[in-house]
Amino acid sequence: MSFPSQTEEQALHERVLRGDSLSWEDVFRVYLDPLIQTLCRIRRLSREEARDALVDVVLSYLTHPGRFDPRKGRLHSYLTQAAVKKTTDTYRREEARQRREQKFGGVFELLARTPNDSLEITVEARLFMERIDRAGLPEKDRAFLKLVLQGERSTHILAEAIGLPPAPEADHRREVKRHRDRLMKFLGRLGKEDRDVYP
């Protein structure tokens, strides 16, 4: 299976430029088999991979035939080069995708805790909560602490939890902050005791 002569290629290219309907089919008929063989040989691709790339390349040439300049070389060389470039781009895109996935996988692995770690944290958190209960914190403080640990930041809600009477917003904010600081100090002391007991 071989490529047509330069004169035949030139004639076919001119038919494509004129918008001859059958010339499109002829380009497929003339070039696809020898181009698939060439691409498989020089790029070590499977026949399907070469076929997929070449059908796209041939269609790209047919829809934009003006991009091919016959003074610069033969049509089959132009199509081969375009197919090589396309398969290289596809290969690089695939490689980049795999790299991204590996990177993401690595980060995920670093951040994710093992099931054992996760269980230990749950157990420790429960033991710590039991210690807070035993420390004799008033009910309002425990409710406040629970909200803070859940990430609640609204002054209004936190003020309500500790039963502050209606007052201007600034007063509420100051009181809530004072309350939070006191409880954080309490937690700090509890944690220190913990470290003293279990070094």
């Binding site: 497929f28 696809l32 088999d33 026949r47 070449l54 059908v55 269609l59 047919l62 829809t63």
Partner: peptide, 19 residues
């Protein structure tokens, strides 16, 4: 019949200038 014909015909369905 070449083995690429059906694939090429399917691909042409997405190209508005083709029959």
């Amino acid at each position: 019949t070449p083995d690429w014909l059906e694939h090429a015909a399917k691909r042409c369905q997405r190209e508005p200038l083709t029959l």
